[in-house]
Amino acid sequence: MSVTNAAVSSQVTAEVPTGPCGDDDCGIRDVLDRLGDRWTVLVIVELSKGVRRFTALERAIPGISQRMLTVTTKRLCRDGLVERIAYPTIPPQVDYQLTPTGRSLADTVFGLADWSRDHKTAIATARDQWDADHPDELR
């Protein structure tokens, strides 16, 4: 490699960030892991409507099992996105609500939903074009 190529190569390497946050660990992998599971976004959307009891959450989210709702709410509580409020009654009564951090995430989720809605047709058109141009790929 010539001296000129080495200089250009080092400049390019220095200008390209190592990830979406540059060199620091902004936590994006943790957030994407949490949001990428099947139920988290649905729980956050439901809780953005207000305080919900466990059974109300379970009824509002079609297909979620009691176990998965328990696991999801525990993870969201651990991450500081949801607050669990237990009342000393018989039978036990538990409410869930978004924390301020959870509400700010809900705003972002709704922004992503708006973007998806606005670009749904363009994405479908691009996919149809790709499939027509590349019939043997991604299937």
Rank of each mutant, 00 (worst) to 15 (best):
M1T: 09
M1Q: 03
T4E: 15
N5E: 13
A6N: 13
A6D: 08
A6C: 06
A6T: 07
A7N: 07
S9Q: 11
S10V: 02
Q11Y: 08
Q11M: 13
V12D: 08
T13C: 06
T13Y: 00
A14H: 05
E15V: 05
E15M: 09
E15N: 06
P17W: 02
P17K: 04
T18L: 14
T18D: 13
P20F: 01
C21K: 05
C21S: 15
G22F: 00
D23G: 15
D25F: 10
D25S: 15
C26G: 14
G27K: 09
G27P: 13
V31P: 06
D33W: 03
D33C: 07
R34P: 03
R34S: 11
L35C: 11
W39G: 00
W39Q: 00
T40M: 03
V41T: 02
E46C: 10
L47N: 05
K49D: 10
K49V: 02
K49E: 15
G50D: 03
G50H: 01
V51L: 02
R53L: 05
R53K: 10
F54H: 08
T55K: 12
T55V: 06
A56D: 13
L57V: 04
L57H: 03
L57P: 12
A60F: 02
I64Q: 06
S65C: 05
Q66H: 12
R67H: 06
M68P: 00
L69D: 04
T70I: 00
T70H: 05
T70F: 04
T70K: 13
T73H: 02
T73P: 03
T73I: 03
T73E: 08
K74Y: 01
K74H: 04
R75S: 14
L76Y: 01
R78G: 11
R78F: 04
L81H: 01
V82R: 01
A86N: 08
A86E: 15
Y87Q: 14
Y87K: 15
P88Q: 09
Q93D: 14
Q93R: 13
D95E: 14
D95M: 04
Y96E: 10
Q97H: 07
L98M: 08
T99E: 10
T99H: 04
G102V: 01
S104H: 12
L105W: 01
A106S: 11
T108A: 15
F110G: 08
G111V: 02
L112Q: 10
A113L: 13
D114V: 12
D118M: 09
D118S: 14
K120F: 06
T121P: 03
A122W: 03
I123H: 10
I123L: 15
A124I: 02
T125M: 11
T125W: 00
D131M: 12
D131Q: 15
H134E: 08
H134R: 14
P135N: 02
D136W: 00
D136F: 07
D136T: 13
L138T: 05
L138H: 06
